[in-house]
C-alpha cells in the first residue's frame, strides 16, 4: 500500500456520490438565504421552527455522517503515511489511532441517528473536502487543518444539533450529539497540544501550520453557513472551543472570517440574482 492517497480514490460502496466543494458552492439550493427577499426567512439558524427543519436536519446529519467517515479515514492515514519517530512521534500516532476509534464510533452513531431521523445512506451527495484537508505531507499541518479547523467546526455543528434536539424534544438526538461533542473537544485539544509541542523550536513550521488552519477555517465557513449571525445555520460554540484549547483571539478570528465568508456568499448570490433579473 502506497503512502499518501488522493481524495478522489476514497473507497465507497455504490450508494455514495461524491462532489467537490466547488460543485457544492455552485448548487443553487444554498443554505444561505438573502434576507432582502420578503418571501423568504431572514433567520437561517437550524431550529425546529424553520419550515424546512426536518429536511435541513436530515441533510446536516448526512453531512456529519460522511464527514465522520472521512475523519476516520484521515486519522487512519496519518497512522500509515508517516514513519514513526522520523516523521511523526510515536505518541502522536497513538493519538491518531485513538481518534480513528472515536471516529469509527461517530460513524456508527451517525448511521443510527440518520436512520432515526428518516434519512438513508447516500441520500445526499458527499463532499470530500474534509479528507482533502487531511492530505498534507506534514503531520503538523494535518493536525492544524483537521484537528483544529475541522474538528473545531464539528464542535460548532454538534452544539447546534444538540440544541436542535433539546428544543425539538428529541432526547435521543441530544444524547448522541452530547457524547460526540465530548470526543470532538478531546480531538481539538489533541491538535492544539501537538501543534504546540512539535513546533516548539520551529516557529516557521508553526506559522505555516496556523496559516493552513486559517485557510481551512475559511474554506469550512461553508460560504457563511457557520457564523455568529442568525443568517447562518450553525453557531460558533465559543464555550466548547475554549475547553478545547482555543484562545479568545483565535475564536474572534474564526468569527470574523466566518462573517466575511457569509458576506462574500451573500454578495455572490445577489450578483447572480441581479444577472437573472437583467436577463428577464
Amino acid at each position: 500500500m502506497r503512502k499518501f492517497m488522493p481524495a478522489s480514490e476514497l473507497a465507497r460502496d455504490e450508494r455514495f456520490s461524491q462532489i467537490t466543494q466547488r460543485d457544492r458552492m455552485a448548487d443553487g439550493r444554498s443554505t444561505v438565504v438573502l434576507n432582502n427577499d420578503q418571501n423568504r426567512r431572514s433567520n437561517n439558524r437550524l431550529t425546529p421552527q424553520r419550515g424546512d427543519a426536518s429536511e435541513a436536519a436530515r441533510a446536516l446529519m448526512h453531512g456529519i455522517f460522511v464527514g465522520e467517515i472521512q475523519a476516520l479515514e484521515g486519522a487512519g492515514r496519518t497512522c500509515w503515511d508517516f514513519t514513526t519517530g522520523e516523521e511523526a512521534p510515536f505518541a502522536l500516532k497513538l493519538d491518531m489511532a485513538r481518534q480513528a476509534w472515536d471516529e469509527a464510533r461517530h460513524v456508527e452513531i451517525s448511521c443510527k441517528l440518520s436512520d432515526w431521523m428518516g434519512a438513508e445512506i447516500g441520500q445526499y451527495a458527499e463532499n470530500t473536502v474534509l479528507f482533502e484537508a487531511a492530505c498534507s505531507d506534514d503531520p503538523v499541518l494535518r493536525l492544524a487543518g483537521v484537528n483544529r479547523a475541522l474538528e473545531g467546526l464539528a464542535i460548532d455543528v454538534f452544539t447546534t444539533m444538540k440544541e436542535f434536539g433539546e428544543i425539538a424534544g428529541d432526547p435521543y438526538l441530544e444524547f448522541c450529539e452530547d457524547w460526540m461533542l465530548a470526543d470532538e473537544v478531546t480531538h481539538v485539544k489533541m491538535g492544539s497540544d501537538w501543534l504546540r509541542k512539535v513546533t516548539e523550536n520551529d516557529p516557521e513550521r508553526r506559522k505555516k501550520a496556523l496559516e493552513f488552519q486559517n485557510i481551512v477555517d475559511k474554506m469550512f465557513s461553508y460560504g457563511g453557513s457557520r457564523s455568529e449571525s442568525d443568517e447562518s445555520s450553525l453557531m460558533i460554540a465559543r464555550r466548547f472551543r475554549e475547553l478545547a484549547g482555543f484562545t479568545d483571539t483565535e475564536v474572534d478570528y474564526i468569527a470574523e472570517v466566518s462573517m466575511q465568508a457569509l458576506n462574500e456568499r451573500k454578495a455572490q448570490i445577489a450578483e447572480r440574482q441581479a444577472a437573472v433579473a437583467s436577463k428577464n
Binding site: 500500500m1 492517497m5 480514490e9 476514497l10 473507497a11 465507497r12 460502496d13 467517515i69 476516520l72 479515514e73 486519522a75 487512519g76 492515514r77 496519518t78 497512522c79 500509515w80 503515511d81 514513526t84 500516532k93 497513538l94 491518531m96 489511532a97 485513538r98 480513528a100 476509534w101 471516529e103 469509527a104 464510533r105 460513524v107 456508527e108 448511521c111 445512506i121 479528507f131
Partner: peptide
C-alpha cells in the same frame, strides 16, 4: 499492524469493514 489497519480504512469500500478497521487500529496501538 495498527499502522496498516489505519491506512487500509480509506481503501475498503465496505462500510462495516471500514468501521471495524478503525476500532481495531486503536486496540493494536494500545
Amino acid at each position: 499492524l495498527f499502522e496498516a489497519l489505519g491506512g487500509w480504512i480509506a481503501t475498503v469500500p465496505e462500510l462495516d469493514v471500514k468501521m471495524r478497521l478503525g476500532t481495531h487500529c486503536y486496540k493494536h496501538a494500545w
